[in-house]
């Protein structure tokens, strides 16, 4: 009975005491069924994956080799010219730099904040649920909503400026969205505000997996709350932190909507707030350089891919070992 209830395991032995012929036919039927299940369950996903991921990727690489403005089929093959052009464009290099600022900035700003808040919210106190909800709200809001909201708040002489003046910090007021040297830090602030809630929720989930017995044991041994966090909780939170870092990094490399909505097109095109993704759309669609835009898309993909693989290889390996290599057979 157990074997029939265990389709995923598949290879478990048939009940003993049957003649060998019967036994092998059961085995064959099980193998067949295993394959039907695999095919039946994965086909829809594979079709979607191939249609909407692999095929478009192939097209993107193909189109990126043409000088093509999206009028008529691509005919003018230019090899890797579009790639060379991208790396010669100072605005694209600005976009790369901005992405780097966002990747690194998100990790070093959001990480400590999220950790501190998660540790706090993990303790029992009145109104904890309300706090958890509040912290998570910005993440649930749509990117465009967040972008428009901050654009209005940060506009010259707007709410943020007025508030700063009100509390006596008028000297700190900047042209948040108009000063070309300031705007990328403003973007980093908005992104942090938007995504730190996600890091907190992730870490809270990780914290709930830390066995109570361990912290209890530490407490019995005379460890202070701080020592318990430092030597028991944090090490056990490692896998969660690394997963969050991975998601944050990939998200930062591909960030588009918040930047697109919050910062003005002029500020983007001057390189002050452009990211690879906004640069791709500005050039691909607005300058109607479809071949070039595809080349930028491929560059963005390759950079994200390499970053993902390196991260996987060096930091994530022990966390995902089982999940990737599998435990069966």
């Amino acid at each position: 009975m157990t074997s029939t209830l265990n389709p995923a395991g598949g290879a478990s032995a048939p009940p003993a005491g049957l003649p060998p012929a019967r036994r092998s036919s059961i085995r064959a039927a099980q193998t067949r069924r295993k394959w039907y299940e695999i095919i039946g369950l994965t086909t829809p996903a594979v079709i979607v994956y191939v249609m909407f991921v692999l095929v478009p990727m192939g097209f993107a690489v193909y189109y990126s080799l043409f000088r093509w403005r999206g009028v008529g089929p691509p005919t003018e093959y230019v090899g890797f010219d579009n790639y060379v052009l991208a790396f010669q464009d100072p605005i694209f290099l600005d976009a790369l730099r901005n992405n780097a600022i966002i990747v690194v900035g998100s990790l070093i700003v959001q990480g400590p904040i999220a950790l501190a808040v998660a540790l706090l919210l993990n303790r029992r106190f009145r109104g904890r649920a309300v706090f958890r909800l509040l912290v998570f709200v910005p993440y649930v809001l749509a990117e465009v909503t967040v972008g428009i909201m901050w654009k209005l708040l940060l506009t010259g002489g707007g709410t943020v400026d007025a508030l700063l003046k009100e509390i006596g910090l008028g000297g700190l007021v900047q042209a948040w969205l108009a000063d070309l040297d300031v705007v990328i830090w403003t973007m980093l602030f908005v992104l942090t505000w938007k995504y730190v809630g996600f890091a907190i929720i992730l870490l809270l989930a990780g914290l709930s997996n830390v066995p109570h017995e361990l912290t209890e044991a530490a407490a019995i041994d005379g460890a202070s709350w701080w020592q318990t966090q430092r030597h028991v909780t944090l090490p056990l939170l490692g896998p969660t932190i690394r997963i969050w870092m991975f998601l944050s990094m990939i998200g930062s490399l591909q960030v588009f909507d918040v930047i697109w909505v919050t910062s003005a097109p002029a500020v983007r095109s001057l390189g002050a707030s452009a990211t690879m993704a906004t640069y791709m759309v500005d050039n691909g669609f607005f300058a109607r350089l479809w071949g070039y835009g595809n080349a930028v898309a491929v560059i963005l993909f390759v950079i994200s891919f390499i970053a993902a693989v390196l991260f996987q290889r060096f930091l994530l390996r022990r966390d995902v070992e089982g999940a990737i290599t599998g435990r069966t057979n």
Binding site: M51, F246, G284, N294, A308, L316, A323, I324
Partner: peptide, 22 residues
């Protein structure tokens, strides 16, 4: 797991081209 996540990332990246094909 990791594969799926990457697939999501790639999917987001190439929505543009996908629309064209579709």
């Amino acid at each position: 797991m990791a594969m799926k996540r990457r697939a999501g990332a790639v999917l987001a990246l190439f929505v543009t081209s996908a629309l064209l094909v579709a």
